[in-house]
Design a protein around this nucleic acid. Structure first.
Lengths: 167, 167
DNA sequence: TTAAACTTTCAATAATTATTGAAAGTTTAT
DNA sequence: ATAAACTTTCAATAATTATTGAAAGTTTAA
């Protein structure tokens, strides 16, 4: 496999993985293009490489910046803006995990808590609703906490310890 | 909050969380309905409760069965089929994690491996592609392994140990 | 058998989500 | 100030994905 083929494969795979996880294709592709680029890219270059429109590029770059994984780079002497993504996978994972937790997991945990806190009227169905949503709440909270802790830790010693422990 | 309100809130929250993670609404809602039901439900009952068509119900029940989290229940003396979902959250999480790993993560890991194994032609861009996809590969593999181990373990001692370790 | 009770399939349609492109907006150099 | 270089916005449109409903298929009881 040659460079170009490998590059295309990586970008399109990452793009379709994105859609599978609720992230749109263009956004995932822009990020992956930046991820393997050796230098910051301009909007023109991104549009050109991925064959997407200016508007699409602009909107998705904005979203990536909102997620904290892409930043504007100002290149001296250049009028236009250039973009880079976080290059350290560990840091990248941290950002994504943190944001998804904040935007998606935490609000759901809140609702599970509310639902599981309704007053028990003694009926079987109410008891079941309370029991099951409470179980889900506890699971979600534990999983969220674990994920955040793991991802926030300095890599290596922790991962190694964990892997040793659970093997 | 009364029972009915709490129930509706739970089902619709779970449904929209689903869409956010690439699982369709009806599928997530059927599962959550079964999850808090005190007894197996027939197709009629599911259609009625969620106001969705017979075809939709049938197709999504099938998918849930493919995922291994819903099973047919045969009730003696009843002609029609009844359905239940795995009621134990731990077990539910195990199934989902396992299936997502198998269907989505593993194939991507494979591609990352292929891409990161192209021959190094000495150019900077090839070196970068190899380096970055290798890092992603390693991260994905570690995360996948950890998730599977964690989720496969008997609960409690492991979770407690982990939480203690990473706190 | 056969017909009633039930489930599945799938083409048509609806709903949702992504993308475009051009107009409006902003910044910078002169 | 102004115009060129660039970015953002957003209504229109395209692409994708979910849903319906009725016909075809299957199972069971008599």
């Amino acid at each position: 496999m040659e460079y170009q083929e490998a590059k295309d494969k990586f970008i399109s795979t990452w793009g379709s993985l994105g859609t599978l996880w609720g992230i749109n294709k263009a956004m995932a592709q822009i990020q992956s293009l930046l991820f393997i680029s050796t230098k910051p890219l301009s909007m023109e270059e991104i549009m050109e490489e991925l064959k997407i429109s200016r508007g699409n590029t602009s909107m998705n770059l904005r979203q990536l910046m909102d997620w904290g994984i892409v930043t504007k780079e100002l290149i001296p002497g250049e009028r236009k803006e250039f973009f880079t993504t976080e290059k350290d996978v560990q840091e990248l994972a941290r950002h994504i995990a943190k944001e998804r937790s904040r935007r998606e997991i935490k609000p759901v945990i809140k609702i599970l808590k509310d639902v599981s806190s309704i007053k028990d009227d003694g009926t079987e169905k109410t008891k079941e609703l309370i029991k099951q949503t409470k179980a889900l709440h506890d699971l979600a909270e534990t999983a969220d906490a674990m994920m955040n802790k793991i991802v926030n830790q300095e890599q290596n010693w922790i991962t190694k310890s964990l892997l040793k422990l659970i093997k």
